[in-house]
Computed example of a mutant assay.
Amino acid sequence: MVEIEKVRSINYSGVFMSCFAQHDTKSVEAIPNHSINYVCTGEQIIESGNERIMVGAGEAVFVRRNHRTKIYKHGKDGETYKGISLILDRNVLRNFYKTMDKSNIPKDIEMSDDNVMKIGRRADTRSLFESLTPYFDDNLKPTEAVAHLKSLEGIYALLNTSDIFYQILFDFADPWKIDLLEFLEDNYMDDLTMEDIARYTGRSLATFKRDFKKISSLSPQKWLIKRRLEAAFLLLQEPGKKVQEVYLEVGFKNPSHFSKAFKALYGYAPTEIKRDEV
Rank of each mutant, 00 (worst) to 15 (best):
L184Y: 04
E230P: 02
K213H: 11
D137G: 03
Y166D: 06
Y81C: 06
S217I: 06
P220D: 06
R8S: 11
S219T: 15
S27L: 10
L224F: 11
R94H: 07
T193E: 15
L158H: 04
T99D: 13
A264Q: 10
I31S: 09
E47Y: 07
W223A: 08
K70M: 11
M189R: 15
A123W: 03
L132G: 00
A147N: 03
G120Y: 08
P220Y: 01
E195Q: 12
R64G: 03
R68F: 15
V28A: 10
C40N: 13
E110H: 14
M17D: 14
T207H: 15
K214L: 13
D77K: 05
M1S: 12
T25K: 15
T161P: 00
E79M: 08
H34W: 06
M111L: 09
F212T: 09
D137W: 00
L158E: 09
A57H: 03
G251P: 15
K242L: 15
D113I: 13
N115Y: 03
E43C: 05
D101E: 13
G78R: 09
S127R: 13
V246N: 03
A232K: 02
V15P: 00
S259I: 01
V39M: 10
T143C: 01
V243Y: 00
E79A: 11
G267Y: 12
Y166T: 08
R90S: 15
G240T: 07
G58E: 02
F252V: 04
D77L: 04
M194Q: 14
S48Y: 11
A173V: 02
T143D: 07
M117H: 02
L88G: 08
F262R: 01
K177T: 07
V92N: 08
I164E: 10
R64P: 02
A231K: 14
Y188I: 13
S18Q: 11
S9N: 12
P220I: 11
R227W: 13
R64S: 02
G42Y: 06
I164A: 08
E272I: 03
D276I: 10
I46A: 05
